[in-house]
Amino acid sequence: VTTYKLVINGKTLKGETTTKAVDAETAEKAFKQYANDNGVDGVWTYDDATKTFTVTE
């Protein structure tokens, strides 16, 4: 299990959150659900070296 980070650069929501997941794909699903629940819809990137997803509106 690895800790992944999400950086949110939204129009109305900015911040960070983390999740523990077995792989990046599982973390991405959780983060996309989180973003959707919070009304954030943007461009996604992922940096494997830092295990960090970024979504920018």
Rank of each mutant, 00 (worst) to 15 (best):
V43S: 08
E25L: 13
N9F: 11
N38V: 14
T18V: 08
Y4Q: 01
N36W: 14
E28A: 12
T50P: 02
L6A: 02
K11N: 11
T56Q: 06
N36F: 13
F53L: 01
W44P: 00
V40A: 04
V22T: 15
T52P: 00
W44E: 00
A49M: 10
G10V: 11
T54N: 05
D48Y: 07
T17D: 03
A30C: 09
N9Y: 12
Y34M: 04
G42C: 02
V1I: 13
V7N: 04
K5F: 14
K29Y: 06
W44Q: 01
K20D: 12
V43D: 11
Y34R: 03
D47C: 10
T19R: 06
G42K: 02
L13M: 14
Y34Q: 03
T17H: 15
V43W: 10
D37I: 12
E25A: 14
V40M: 06
A21V: 04
V55H: 01
T54Y: 13
V55A: 03
T50R: 05
A21N: 03
Y4W: 08
D41K: 13
Y34K: 03
T3K: 09
K29V: 09
K5R: 12
V1L: 14
E57L: 10
A24M: 13
A21K: 03
L6F: 06
Y34W: 11
V22S: 13
T26D: 09
T19S: 05
V43A: 10
G10T: 15
W44D: 00
L6H: 00
E57Y: 08
T18G: 03
E16M: 13
A27R: 00
K29G: 05
G42Q: 02
D47M: 04
E28W: 14
K11V: 12
Y4G: 01
N9S: 09
V7L: 09
A24W: 14
W44A: 01
T52Q: 04
L13A: 09
E57I: 10
Y34A: 03
V7S: 04
Q33F: 05
K51A: 05
E28G: 09
T2P: 08
D37F: 11
Y46F: 06
G39K: 09
K5D: 02
T19L: 14
A27V: 03
K14W: 09
T17N: 05
T52R: 03
A30F: 15
K5G: 03
T2A: 13
T50W: 04
N36V: 15
I8W: 07
T56H: 06
D37R: 09
K14F: 11
I8F: 06
K20G: 08
D48P: 13
K11L: 14
D23P: 01
V43T: 10
E28S: 07
T26C: 07
V22I: 13
L6C: 07
V43N: 07
K51M: 07
T2V: 12
A21I: 03
T26A: 13
E28V: 08
G10C: 10
T2C: 10
T50N: 07
E57M: 09
T12Q: 14
T56Y: 10
G39F: 07
